[in-house]
Nucleic acid binder design. Structure first.
Length: 462
DNA sequence: GCATGATCATGC
DNA sequence: GCATGATCATGC
């Protein structure tokens, strides 16, 4: 069958694909799709390959357009409340073969062979709309800039090293910066062999972090979504140093210094009372202009947490996460839960400690949660879900005092559940009315990391 | 002095 | 109007 494009000519493929922009699959190949077994309800990527590009969806180890080494990928956008578009999810690439990766260099890796050139079809996700009717917004080829590729190469080496250490089962997305190793499979529990351990490991795929996909979308649409300042100015620097090296190096100069001393040393004046004071101070130390975002952190989905330690080294506060909806948690599985997706990220902790009334910079740490502690967080999450499912939120203590059954600090050393609301009347609806109070709503709650956990496992751990 | 529940302040 | 990070109040 003759194709409407030439597989040996990259430009021909791109030109043909560009015709998708502004259209839906129904508009460009609706008749074929409706006549097929998909009947308009298939997965967007599969329909795109089969009915627009006319090849069978496959999971071969070569790129989809192997003749020109270009891989076809589609990815959804979501619209924010402020009408701006962002990537809805990470971009999942090829499966990581644990047996092969240990023998591959980055240059000859599956990642490079399949994903160094990507033809991206970016479409608008709308809840309830069939994939055949979603509007295609941007179509273009993506190649990684040299600096990003150096960072991705280091990410690849990090993943490879974990497999070499017999720790494929402990891999986490938070291990790396731009290139992640995300779980993948129909069954999330699907397990695979690894070469240097008898423990089976979850199947994982190379993936680009959601923040990195946002960066790609902004670049391709030529509509900058914000102003960015860079920590790394050239591929040569990216080759020589990791993001971690650079960040630690910038902070180290100020270890032991009080905030007023750091401010005067930086020769800047930031309002110490302002809400974003610590975020501004971090940017200033990193040499990023205050109205800019940190390019490398945005692309890496890094969460910065500033912690103020008391003189006895216990953080003054626990660390909160966004409130969860009671109606959502009962529908979620742990693997897909919002809480887990936070704990899978990479964190940058900045520790200050009180000395009398002054805060002194102690140190900074990149951190992501070890898998054993994630199991502990899972236990907290499951207990919370059970309580909401059973409608057993409130209980009586000593016959009169009302307390919640939610997992407290005593339940787990890692995490607990606590109110996070404007006041006690600031509520979310309950899927099942509370047995004791008969109420169909309850004060907004969120998951917190225990301050003692932050002290013992993040601050004090070398 | 800490755990738990409650609330505040800011900025988008 | 609400999310988010920060802080307060009380009782053990």
């Amino acid at each position: 069958m003759s194709l409407p494009y030439n597989r040996n000519d990259k430009k021909s493929i791109i030109d043909y694909s560009k015709k998708l922009e502004g259209k839906t699959l129904r508009q460009v190949c609706g008749n074929e799709i409706l006549a097929s077994s998909f009947s308009g309800k298939g997965n967007f990527g599969q329909m795109l390959e089969k009915f627009y590009f006319h090849y069978e969806p496959n999971s071969k180890s070569e790129a989809d357009f192997s003749e020109v080494g270009m891989e076809l990928k589609s990815t959804p956008l979501k619209q924010l409340k402020n009408k701006n578009y962002r990537s809805k999810e990470r971009l999942v690439l090829s499966i990581i073969d644990y047996l092969k990766i240990v023998q591959q260099s980055f240059e000859e890796s599956d990642f490079m062979r399949k994903s160094s050139s990507i033809l991206l079809v970016i479409y608008e996700h709308e809840k309830g709309l069939n994939a055949i009717d979603t509007k295609i917004k941007i179509v273009d080829e993506w190649n990684f800039p040299a600096t990003d590729l150096e960072i991705i190469k280091k990410d690849f080496e990090t993943i490879k090293q974990k497999v070499l250490d017999g720790k494929a089962h402990e891999i986490s997305e938070g291990d790396t910066f731009y290139l992640g190793a995300c779980t993948k499979g129909v069954n999330k529990d699907s397990l695979r062999d690894q070469p240097f351990s008898k423990t089976k490991a979850k199947q994982r795929a190379y993936s680009l972090k959601q923040g990195y996909v946002n960066h790609i979308i902004a670049s391709l649409s030529r509509e900058p979504v914000g102003n960015y300042g860079k920590l790394i100015q050239s591929p040569e620097i990216a080759k020589k140093y990791t993001i971690e090296d650079i960040v630690l190096d910038k902070f180290k100069k100020y270890y032991g210094m009080s905030i007023p001393d750091i401010l005067s040393s930086l020769k800047i004046d930031i309002n110490e009372k302002a809400k974003g004071f610590f975020a501004s101070l971090t940017k200033a130390i990193l040499g990023i202009e205050l109205n800019n975002e940190i390019d490398e952190f945005e692309k890496s989905d890094i969460i910065i947490k500033t912690v103020r330690l008391k003189e006895n080294s216990l953080p003054k506060e626990d660390i909160s996460f966004p409130t969860f909806k009671f109606e959502d948690i009962v529908k979620e599985d742990w693997e897909e839960s919002d809480f887990k997706s936070f704990l899978d990220k990479k964190f940058l902790f900045v520790f200050y400690q009180f000395e009398n009334d002054l805060l002194v910079l102690r140190n900074v740490k990149f951190w992501n949660m070890p898998s054993t502690d994630k199991n502990e967080a899972k236990r907290v999450w499951i207990r919370t879900k059970e309580i909401v499912e059973n409608g057993s939120i409130v209980k009586l203590m000593k016959g009169t005092i009302r307390v919640t059954n939610f997992p407290s600090k005593k339940f787990s050393k890692v995490s607990h559940v606590r109110p996070h609301a404007l006041n006690a009347n600031d509520c979310f609806p309950l899927p099942i009315a509370d047995e004791l109070t008969k109420s169909k709503e309850y004060t907004k709650h969120s998951f917190w990391l225990n301050n003692s956990y932050v002290r013992d496992e993040i601050y004090l751990k070398s």
